[in-house]
Design a protein around this nucleic acid. Structure first.
Length: 788
RNA sequence: GGGCGUUUAGCUCAGUUGGUUAGAGCGUUGCGUUCACAUCGCAGAGGUCACAAGUUCGAAUCUUGUAACGCCCACCA
């Protein structure tokens, strides 16, 4: 009976299997009660500030990709916390601006003409609340160690104040200006856009060859994909070296269908080989039109309204939308014999990323931040940041090089941070609030002055535009310190985000921190890849190729999913793979069973640990190597490599070998040796738990309670990160020979269909090994009675 | 058109500064369950390291070129 007691654990003390649902919930509550992740104001430890992306609350479609990128960053946060940093890890929500509006419009199928501004804003606020709740629940269930007491949303008073302060500061520094320019415009959303709001999309289109009557009496053919722009034609160009058209110098062309004359000009930029060598310039069909218009002071013809309709300039086509006008004009040109021919082409067009509508250029007065004059500075600042992985800097550099326009930050929308300005309607004077009065809402508050200081007009109105979403979110690096009132927490330590927002969030953050403080916004930038579906396609709401996150957590548990997220190196895309998630559960099970094994024998440990052996020294050495390696990898944000090192040690060295190596001692009569092996088992295992804790925080916390050395310690997650363990001097230089010998015996048994548990009377080893030294170990582990 | 990344076992991926017979997991095949673990253990089979040329005593690793895939940018008269 006594023997049986020894190897039995009561179900109450240590259950036979680990129930992730019960335990994960238990620890979630416990961590929350202990306020484990709250920023500690009084702590003298070095700080570690994480500027995590404030997601759009419109994400009612959270999937494995979101889980992946946030957990990957969180591995590092947990590691840093165990390294003793006073971590500040607040979560924000980007709840203002176009993304939220678009989400609400789609969800409620809103007709913008039939809803008041305040009703609309109310709906946005409501969805914002819901979205925050969804995220919060998911992040909590995943064990993301965010300090929820410091949550911010970009439209709340403090972030609004910081955003408005930023605008005010830039204005005072002369870096913010308002100007009427042909600007990137979304006719569907009815707002100005910036370059970073664009995506390119390929579509089938037609190249139309149109006959123009020329002043030399000939007929010229001009190729265009946009014949609807004809009424806005302001000039025709050819290359000055193009011999075909020399007689047209200083001539004129007659625009067909609309029958007006435009000057013919020359430009080196015209490619003789393209189309017919004749190019029409309209205001404004594309980038080239804009260039010519700017360089040659061409007149402006406004053809497109802010909601994407043809203006009165279009004559009979007035009021049509762009696509319809194009079709109608092509039909009319063909009917009149003016259309020489049509060719099918694949055209790539710039579309607005939020609604896929092709963008137009519309003349409009907008607010801009100066960025195009300063490219060298942006590159210089970008280089000061540590990029993980380093090659992601290339994306940043290419983006900076490609900048064409200053950053347009005003949006003709409702739900966003208002500009802190009032405008004199008579002279255009911009009236600023006092900084100490921020935040202000010019729609609800009176202008600080009732009479324009410049022209004495009383006609003062609030600036009606709101800020672009990136104009507010780019302030987070200097917003975070305001949340805790700690000015020194800038620049922040790490910003983790996916690569598609390098050109927006990251770039604009660099711009703002540079312009305000001549500082980088963050010291380290950790760029994650995308979540892919099982076929390797990007997970997206549109494709619907994902399982909702909450279902994943429910089915597999947080630890298992977090484990899956370690599967791709930094910046690499990661395929969703249920098998990999199951692997995560396997690791949990293995940790649990090893723990059970150790606890069983620990129940009647004599405590007189001495008689350490070679195997003990060996496993401690291997642990030390693993600690060093895992630490190195975590330091460089290589959680995937850290995991591999930890797993190799735990599975292959500890569970497969060491545990087997000590069984005979645990079951033997030598209490000192038994106790020694138990001490090593526990010591090594508690360190394994710590190494795994950043990745699988729940199971490690549960098991830590059994194995922690300091019984006062509340949680593994603020316990000390493993360090090298000093151990007795034992010569183990030939230990690998012993392992090889054991492998040989295992293989022999397997090949001869002998149970591994079966004893062999005699065996002749082929492996060269110091049998004098290792006979006991090899014999006991291999269950061989005698070596011959 | 320019840039970056990827290409290693049926699948998903490791492979450090070039160095013996290229590794893991999954899958597959065989064997094995009273004695921590069947959500298991052990063993085996399986690779011209995308292709070509070069450097070298030696190349998955370095150089050059080619191809496929992915992403970013530009061009789109």
């Amino acid at each position: 009976m006594e023997n049986q007691d020894k190897n039995t654990l009561s179900e109450d003390f240590f259950p036979k299997s680990y129930d992730f649902k019960i335990n994960e919930e238990k620890w979630r509550c416990d961590w929350s009660e202990k306020k484990l992740y709250e920023f500690n104001y009084n702590d003298k430890k070095p700080t570690f500030v994480v500027d995590t992306p404030p997601p759009y609350v419109s994400a009612d479609h959270l999937h494995a990709g979101h889980i992946m990128s946030y957990t990957q960053a969180e591995f590092i946060v947990r590691y840093k916390r165990m390294r003793g940093y006073n971590v500040f890890y607040p979560m924000g929500f980007d709840d203002n601006g176009l993304p939220t509006e678009r989400f609400v419009e789609k969800k409620y199928k809103i007709d913008k003409s039939k809803i008041t501004k305040s009703e609309f804003i109310e709906l946005c606020l409501k969805e914002t609340e819901k979205g925050i709740e969804t995220y919060r629940n998911l992040w909590n269930s995943l064990g993301i160690s965010v300090d929820w007491s410091k949550t911010y949303s970009t439209i709340a008073p403090l972030p609004t104040k910081i955003s408005q302060w930023s605008i005010l500061d830039l204005y005072k520094k002369g870096l913010l200006y308002k100007k009427e320019l042909p600007i990137l415009w979304c006719p569907f959303c009815g707002t100005a856009l910036s370059q970073s709001d664009l995506e390119t999309k390929e579509r089938d289109s037609k190249m139309n060859y149109i006959k123009f009557n020329l002043s030399n009496g000939e007929v010229g053919i001009i190729a265009t994909t946009r014949p609807e722009m004809l009424p806005a034609c302001v000039a025709v160009y050819f290359n000055p070296t193009d011999e075909r058209y020399q007689s047209l110098i200083n001539g004129e062309a007659t625009v067909p269908l609309f029958d007006f004359n435009v000057p013919i000009k020359t430009s080196e930029a015209v490619d003789k080989e393209k189309g017919t060598g004749l190019m029409m310039v309209c205001t404004w069909g594309d980038q080239e039109d804009l260039e010519k218009w700017r360089l040659d002071n061409l007149p402006t013809k406004n053809l497109i309204t802010e909601d994407g309709k043809i203006t009165e300039l279009g004559g009979k086509y007035q009021g049509m939308n762009i696509e319809d006008a194009r079709k109608a004009i092509i039909t009319d040109l063909a009917d009149m014999g003016i259309l020489e021919k049509q060719e099918s082409i694949i055209q790539s067009v710039n579309i607005h990323e939020r609604c896929d509508t092709p963008v137009e250029f519309v003349l409009s007065k907008q607010w801009f931040i100066k960025i195009t004059d300063n490219k060298e500075k942006w590159l210089e600042m970008g280089k000061k940041i540590n990029w993980f992985p380093a090659h992601m800097y290339n994306n940043y550099e290419i983006w900076v090089d490609s900048l064409k326009w200053d950053w347009c930050i005003s949006r003709q929308r409702y739900y966003g941070v208002p500009f802190p300005f009032w405008i004199c309607q008579d002279c255009g004077e911009v009236i600023l609030p006092d900084e100490k009065d921020l935040p202000v809402n010019p729609f609800e508050q009176e202008s600080p002055v009732s009479i324009c200081p410049k022209c004495a007009s009383k006609n003062i109105e609030p600036e009606k535009d709101v800020m672009d979403t990136w104009a507010t979110s780019s302030c987070t690096p200097f917003l975070l310190r305001e949340i805790v009132g700690r000015p020194e927490l800038f620049p922040v330590d790490v910003r983790p985000n996916a690569h598609e927002i390098i050109r927006t969030w990251d770039f604009y953050s660099v711009v703002k921190s540079t312009l305000h403080f001549d500082s980088i916004p963050f010291k380290n930038l950790m760029i994650s890849g995308h979540g892919l579906d099982e076929q390797g396609k990007k997970i997206s709401k549109r494709l619907g190729n994902y399982t909702p996150s909450d279902k994943l957590v429910d089915e597999y548990g947080a630890d298992a999913i977090r484990y899956w997220a370690t599967g791709a190196g930094l910046g690499q895309n990661l395929r969703f793979n249920p098998k990999e998630i199951k692997k995560g559960k396997q690791i949990s099970t293995k940790l649990w069973n090893v723990a059970r094994f150790i606890m069983m024998y620990s129940q009647n440990d004599s405590g007189i640990a001495s008689k350490y052996e070679t195997a003990d020294k060996w496993i401690v050495e291997k642990l030390n190597e693993t600690v060093e390696e895992a630490t190195k990898h975590f330091e460089s944000y290589e959680y995937a490599k850290a995991k591999m090192a930890i797993e190799e040690f735990f599975m292959s060295k500890f569970a497969d070998y060491y545990v087997e190596f000590v069984k005979y001692r645990l079951n033997g009569e030598d209490l000192a040796s038994k106790s020694a092996s138990l001490a090593v088992l526990k010591k090594v295992f508690v360190n394994i738990l710590k190494l795994y804790a950043p990745i699988v925080p729940f199971i490690t916390e549960e098991l830590y309670q059994y194995f922690k050395e300091d019984k006062e310690e509340k949680t593994i997650h603020t316990s000390k990160w493993p360090e090298k363990i000093a151990f007795e001097e034992i010569d183990i230089s030939d230990f690998n020979d012993a392992i090889s010998a054991i492998d040989e015996i295992r293989k022999y048994k397997s090949e001869n269909q002998i149970s591994l548990g079966a004893e062999i009377d005699e065996y002749k080893l082929n492996t060269k090994v110091n049998l004098e030294k290792y006979k006991l170990l090899i014999g006991k582990v291999g269950k061989v009675n005698k070596f011959i």
